[in-house]
Amino acid sequence: VEGMTFNLRHLGMTLVDQPKGEELSAAAVKRIVATAKAIGKKPKKVTLKVSPRGIVLYDRLTNKLLENVSIYRISYCTVDKQHDKMFAYIAQNTLNGTLECHAYLCSKRKVAQAVALTVAQAFTVAFELWQVAK
């Protein structure tokens, strides 16, 4: 419940028009990978902390808080089939309501799977807490 931390690299973000879907997320990850390659920018090293409250992102070099994504804003998470070291989630931007797909490069496929499974557990715990609160 207190959360788990993973060291990943943020590869990028792209807008999507649906909150979930295998084809949709695969296409989004493909776009992010292509853009990152085109730009040739090294993916930013981040620390991703997962808990039933949501996902918190810190810049690993400066320890600066990058983003605090509430669990209620995250619609979906996945490990991409083609890029199996890539973990991605789709979240709604609170400012403008747009749906963003964020993709992260993990050191190994197992790490990507561990992150996805941990986020899924956070979804489940958050749902149980939400039902109690209701």
Binding site: E22, A26, I74, S75, V79, K81, Q92, F123, F127, W130
Partner: peptide
């Protein structure tokens, strides 16, 4: 081939405040 791992969030857009 390994199938994708994906999870939908049951609390997406559900907030306790409203």
């Amino acid at each position: 081939n390994t199938n994708t791992i994906h999870f939908d969030n049951p609390v997406y857009q559900k907030t306790t405040e409203d």
